[in-house]
């Protein structure tokens, strides 16, 4: 574990905490994409099947459980909480799951390092994570008045990905035989998806204006 990896994981954790806090404190999930949260739930379920088969470290196990539990909590609130669910922008959050899930599944079946159920599902989760933020970005673009915390949530998620790239560079330079091309390419794609958002986020922060994404 290097400092970039730890910082990346902590940023990821913080992003989820910001989202939980926003929804819980304001009793509103306005501007939050349920589709993105459900895609993340699918990502975590497929990736963390090894919770049952392979122990890596206490740290890994606890983080995996936190990511799963927090994502399912957010989904539960958005779908079933009697106050919160009313604030969900159902009509705006129209991205179709199948446009992301099916191509990622096909790609995982074709491009993986081992053709086993566990490994294909793990690879699927890597591909799906790369694009799971898209419904959230589309929803933000349609939201006129983006909540500060929602903006911060997406910014922290993007930062987590950027820190993981630094982690991979560090590991590549320090660990012999450390290579994972599929993960690197997906991670780079995932980070590129955020660049446009970063540009407007930093611009609004510099000018002390409210964040808004041009359509």
């Amino acid at each position: 574990m290097n400092i970039f990896r730890l910082a990346g994981d902590m940023t990821h954790l913080l992003s989820i905490l910001v989202l939980l806090l926003k929804i819980n404190a304001t009793r509103s999930c306005r501007g939050v994409s349920l589709k993105t949260q459900e895609l993340y739930a699918l990502v975590f379920v497929c990736r963390y099947l090894d919770l049952f088969t392979n122990f890596i470290s206490m740290y890994n196990t606890i983080m995996k459980i936190i990511f799963l539990a927090s994502t399912f909590t957010i989904i539960y609130w958005m779908r079933f909480h009697k106050v919160i669910r009313v604030t969900y922008d159902r009509e705006q959050d129209t991205f179709r799951y199948q446009f992301l899930v099916l191509p990622c599944l096909v790609l995982a079946l074709l491009l993986n390092s081992e053709f086993t159920v566990m490994e294909v599902l793990w690879t699927f989760s890597i591909y799906l994570e790369a694009v799971a933020i898209l419904p959230q970005l589309v929803l933000l673009q349609r939201t006129n008045n983006i909540d500060n915390l929602t903006g911060n949530y997406v910014f922290l998620l993007g930062s987590y990905r950027a820190l993981y790239i630094l982690n991979w560079i560090y590991r590549f330079l320090t660990e012999p035989n450390y290579r994972q091309y599929l993960v690197w390419i997906s991670g780079i794609v995932q980070t590129i998806i955020y660049i446009d958002f970063f540009y407007y986020y930093i611009k609004s922060w510099k000018n002390n204006e409210k964040l808004s994404l041009p359509a």
Binding site: H12, R47, M63, W122, V183
Partner: peptide, 10 residues
């Protein structure tokens, strides 16, 4: 990917 160690990133 060194599979025998499992995937150690989150």
């Amino acid at each position: 990917i060194p599979k025998e160690d499992g995937h150690d990133e989150l």
